[in-house]
Design a protein around this nucleic acid. Structure first.
Lengths: 305, 305
DNA sequence: GTTTTTCTTTGACTAAAGTCAAAGAAATAT
DNA sequence: ATATTTCTTTGACTTTAGTCAAAGAAAAAC
């Protein structure tokens, strides 16, 4: 929506250039050592992904040509760094896992890279290190957030159902009384005129969702706002909420409501921070302990004057 | 001195990995386009350094083999991207400069990279963009600072004299009455028993200096603390001051003094922040308007309890 | 006024990185 | 049951990246 200022772009690019030149290159250089970079990266990826990855996965992750990968795998195997086996489910696939020697080499690489980083940080006082760590965490958080897209999908879509399953499992673990999957909205309730379903994607993987459903004329209900554990604390829930509210406004709804469970205190705080106010119960939903409402259309309080 | 915590190293490396994977790779990939990466980088470097660089400079900056560089230059020239000429002063050297076509190509690359960055930042609100820009600026500042080393050099060393020359030119421009180079300390005053001279290096280039000189028994004087304009606001002056104070303490001095000019208000603020207190004039130096002193040996006030 | 050093070019390489297509084996779709 | 698709391997390449040494020309050192 808002145009990006040239200053922001310039600052971003300047950091980009500086960082890759100063740090990125160094890391890559040390990663290699006695081994072609491609092989080193491959071994690192294999050792990094627990026990057993399929060649197909590796191909996707590293974006390699099938033939090229096959050959590199062969040389790593010949050197005793990895073990190859046929995939138990699908015998077209090969599964590859690191041997003890392979793991040891990656460990050694990590040790070296750590020493390098340590040497660099040595030049800073503990306070400055803390400042650097914080700045990097902030930058990483915002870069991740910038890369996440929120898309409207059909309620029947596999990604939508996968998110809802994860959401249900999450709640089942957090609610003292558990959570029953049958309480999820049906796919038809969030499709077409009845409602909408949004999925957040990070690098192709679904990492969050949210549903909107028509409650009564002019009033919508927001349900199942969920963020993958690994994508939390990025500000993604707000993005989902924004998307749902925009959708509601586009449908001519003037009010959105929602309910939450007593244990979800962070969620309650977020709703309040986003302009929701607590209202009396509008459902007798078993899990609901708090009910919120927000009037749409009015510009947000923090809009520029 | 202080050991680096594993947490800091881990956070650093995590950011490192994330950033190079997410951003660095992208940028490199787009930089290339229809041209080998090496050539693209070379053209970028040539176009970026105003009009006319010697091959020798390029070789140093990009760390390339002479033969390899020569060949790449030849192909770029054949494509009409650059122009080669003999260096006016030294006819062993070749000077290379971009043609209009070369400049246009680099412009186009920049436009593309800018569009990429812009597209990425689009996913953030203006507030978040500002936050990201600030975090990156902080990270870059600290990374630069971490890479700068402060080394003791002989007062006669070329780097020392180069810094003092730049310092004198700097003061000459800032003092209303100008500054005369003959007021610099002599090399012998900051060598051996008489004193010490420190130079700060960033990637091999001197970017700051500071001198210590014996004033009277037990008392030292700090002089000529200077930081290159492009290395300011990093906290480097404090690092230099620390080094000078440590050297003074190691020599058994208990007090260090210094004087400053009336116009150098930031310097005065820094000295105060570093534990210096204003004292009566101890010299009748023409440029001096404020005199400071610090007692050494006592732990700093901000030391952990 | 030599000798030595510096700088570039050229030839002759090597290793790494990557591409493309054919082919065989296994799973899926029809 | 047959056709189609998916996945890996292999052979046969090409391009990039990079190294090393020899040689010629000019500058700097002695």
């Amino acid at each position: 929506m808002e145009p990006v200022s040239t200053d922001d772009v310039t600052a971003f690019r300047r950091f980009n250039r500086y960082f890759t030149r100063r740090i990125g290159v160094l890391d890559d250089h040390y990663l290699g050592q006695d081994r072609p970079l491609g092989e080193a990266r491959l071994l690192f990826e294999i050792a990094g992904s627990g026990s057993g990855v399929s060649l197909r996965d590796l191909r996707g992750r590293l974006g390699l040509d099938a033939g090229y990968l096959s050959r590199m795998v062969k040389t790593l195997q010949a050197q005793g760094m990895i073990r190859l086996s046929v995939h138990p489910q699908d015998s077209r696939l090969r599964t590859v896992e690191p041997t003890a020697a392979g793991r040891a080499e990656v460990e050694e690489q990590n040790r070296r890279a750590g020493a390098l980083a340590s040497g660099l940080l040595q030049g800073l006082t503990p306070d400055q290190r803390r400042e650097l760590t914080e700045a990097m965490a902030t930058a990483q958080r915002l870069l991740r957030l910038a890369g996440i897209t929120v898309e409207r999908v059909n309620g029947h879509a596999p990604d939508a159902r996968a998110c809802l399953d994860a959401y249900a499992a999450d709640l089942d673990a957090r609610f003292p009384e558990g959570f029953d999957k049958s309480d999820l909205v049906g796919a038809h309730e969030v499709s077409g005129d009845a409602g909408a379903f949004f999925v957040a994607y990070e690098e192709g993987r679904p990492v969050g969702c949210g549903a909107l459903r028509r409650l009564e004329p002019g009033v919508g209900e927001i349900k199942h706002v969920w963020v993958h554990p690994e994508a939390r604390r990025l500000g993604l829930a707000r993005r989902l909420l924004d998307a749902l509210e925009a959708e509601a406004a586009a449908r001519g709804l003037t009010v959105v409501r929602l309910d939450t469970h007593a244990v979800l205190t962070e969620a309650q705080a977020m709703y309040e921070a986003c302009g929701y106010t607590e209202i009396p119960a509008y459902t007798d939903h078993v899990y609901a302990a708090h009910w919120f409402e927000k009037r749409l259309g009015a510009p947000a309080a923090d809009a520029p004057a």
